[in-house]
């Protein structure tokens, strides 16, 4: 495809092609500090192509696909091209990555040990990881935590942080405009703005760490901390994984060890300050 870029994020390399120049230009700008991988063999190809011939020029409409795709993926406006590219990369990981167990989770690291946070969209795990990354932790990823089934380590996947709605201003205030991408208005998930991780997150994106604490955050509820049974934790993590079934027995063994060894808590919080205090206390007590 005429417009294209190759990006490496953690262990995965993506070749992204687009029928339009804008999404590639935005990626080039926001991923400028990532390793230069021109001339690399990519693990995945992502394509941003017109939904049909007409939609290349007239009310341009993007169909996201690639090596792996969903036939019924909703078309996206070219104005949301950056988001489409990010979704395209996530899609390849979710459907095609086999070298680690993929957990739909954010993660941050301190002293070589990793805090993993998992929850559904809107739980606050992305925002929390982004803000912890500005408060002495190393940001490892806001979307996927990669569990190495052999060693038990969590590996980073520090792509751009995707911030939604109310989280946008909170994070933009904390990190400054220079590290923020364009505002994407009224996407299917509301307003979205991307944030570039700190340079240490990118520089150390090949360094994993052993998981030391697992949290199930939930934003928008009165402060509370709950314990969970190992059975429930296991089931929730299989649901948070897109390749648990595809990996077979190694995933079962790896995830069993993770659940047995890593202390876990569900936390509810109504504000960022509350969440930071809980994370600090639980990390102190349990990790």
């Amino acid at each position: 495809m005429k417009h294209n870029i190759t990006l490496r994020i953690g262990p995965a390399t993506f070749r992204i092609g687009s029928a339009w120049p804008q999404p590639i230009a935005q990626l080039a700008q926001l991923y400028a500090a990532y390793p230069d991988v021109r001339g690399a063999v990519a693990d995945f190809t992502v394509r941003l192509q017109p939904t049909n011939l007409l939609r290349r020029v007239l009310r341009p409409s993007i169909f996201i696909t690639g090596d792996h795709g969903l036939a019924d993926a909703a078309p996206m406006s070219l104005a949301h091209g950056l988001l489409a590219a990010e979704m395209g990369m996530n899609l390849q990981m979710a459907l095609g990555w086999r070298r680690h167990l993929l957990l739909h989770a954010s993660s941050v690291e301190k002293d070589g040990r990793v805090l993993v946070m998992t929850g559904e969209s809107g739980s606050g795990k992305s925002t929390l990881s982004a803000l912890l990354g500005e408060r002495g932790w190393r940001f490892m990823g806001d979307e996927f935590a990669l569990l190495d089934c052999d060693s038990g380590a969590i590996l980073p996947f520090p792509r751009l942080v995707s911030l939604k709605n109310r989280a946008i201003d909170v994070v933009a205030d904390a990190v400054g405009e220079a590290r923020m991408g364009p505002l994407l208005n009224a996407t299917a998930k509301g307003d979205i703005r991307h944030m570039v991780p700190r340079s240490d997150a990118v520089a150390r994106m090949d360094q994993g760490g052993m998981p030391a604490l697992l949290l199930f955050p939930r934003f928008g509820h009165a402060a509370d901390v709950r314990t969970l049974g190992q059975g429930e934790i296991f089931m929730r993590l299989t649901q948070a994984s897109t390749n648990y079934v595809a990996l077979g027995e190694p995933a079962f063994t790896g995830l069993t060890r993770f659940v047995r060894q890593v202390p876990a808590r569900a936390i509810d919080f109504a504000s960022g300050e509350e969440a930071f205090a809980m994370v600090d206390r639980l990390w102190e007590e349990l990790a």
Binding site: G39, V41, A42, T45, D67
Partner: peptide, 15 residues
């Protein structure tokens, strides 16, 4: 094959 050749080969093989 160079890297570009590999990328084309792998994409075609997957498709």
């Amino acid at each position: 094959l160079d890297a570009d050749g590999w990328n084309r080969l792998l994409a075609a093989a997957r498709a």
